[in-house]
Design a protein around this nucleic acid. Sequence first.
DNA 1: CCTAATTATGTGCGTAACGCATATATGCGT
DNA 2: ACGCATATATGCGTTACGCACATAATTAGG
Lengths: 169, 169
Amino acid sequence: MDTEIANLLGALSLAVMDRIEHGAREVIGRGGETPAALVVIGYGEGMTNEKLRRILGLSHSGTVRLVDRLVSDQLVERRPGDDAREVALHLTPKGAATRKELMASRISAVASLLNVLSPTETKRLGTLIRDLLVRQDTSEMDRFTICRMCDDRVCTRCPLPTSKGKRAR
Amino acid sequence: MDTEIANLLGALSLAVMDRIEHGAREVIGRGGETPAALVVIGYGEGMTNEKLRRILGLSHSGTVRLVDRLVSDQLVERRPGDDAREVALHLTPKGAATRKELMASRISAVASLLNVLSPTETKRLGTLIRDLLVRQDTSEMDRFTICRMCDDRVCTRCPLPTSKGKRAR
DNA sequence: CCTAATTATGTGCGTAACGCATATATGCGT
DNA sequence: ACGCATATATGCGTTACGCACATAATTAGG
């Protein structure tokens, strides 16, 4: 049955996320979308509260408070944006270092599950996941959401389609 | 690189869990480990607070309050256990129905990502995930933790090893 | 150029889902 | 019978959110 394979992927995904979240909590001492926020803010210099909100899928106030936490942990700075309404979020040096730790922890968490496969099997799995992702019908915002924990030093060729089907709002 | 594939699996797992959690919240209106608890309680008739606690990885009080919520939602009943210290957790009819909805929602969430692959590719992916899981060094309790959302009507041949390496405490 | 709608942010207030410390009851071993 | 381990419950605090509302800045229309 096809549902059997769906169940296996669900179980694997749960195991992977359990390990990722456990590691993230050890690194930054916070849970929820906080680690993802740090990664997302690090992708570029133009991140605003509102973009972050959409990527993380949180309410507005939830995002403001999340940034409050990052600021009080001295990981992020709020600077005035080009548009005077916007807040430009920037990583502090400590924030950039923590972000690297976070991503390294994530990769090693996944690798610890993955390393039971032979190099050939791993490559096969990689190809299948890549094919699976490349065929998803994702908006621009969906891409950022899926990639909100991704290690940009590692993911040089993101398979997710850029402008296919749905349009970002 | 091997880390690139780890990153892809991490991204996929995040996408899968996002969809599973979103569906679960729609079905039971609660988040965190609450949906998993309902699934786990449904696996057998002998579930106790303490076993549940270990499987979900929560604190004791967290588990008691979680069961409080399930009871107040009329999904679960607390009955006296064989051992008079224990509480035997049982699904109500409503609880059993909600549990089925929950698992169906989970399978369909995963399938919606998976159905871009051809039957051949899907089967290949299933084989690889099965191989990956079967080689994990998991204790008895780890198994239940990984399988805490699994659909027992679908997962007839669980790949996770029963008594290998670590021992359950 | 002035007003209205839109966009981005911040705040008061409440809630869900936890953890820690402590208390109580039952079972077990000697 | 006594001490210790096990299972559950409760008081209290915290984290990570959401909703409703308020405020400042930009954009659109006449």
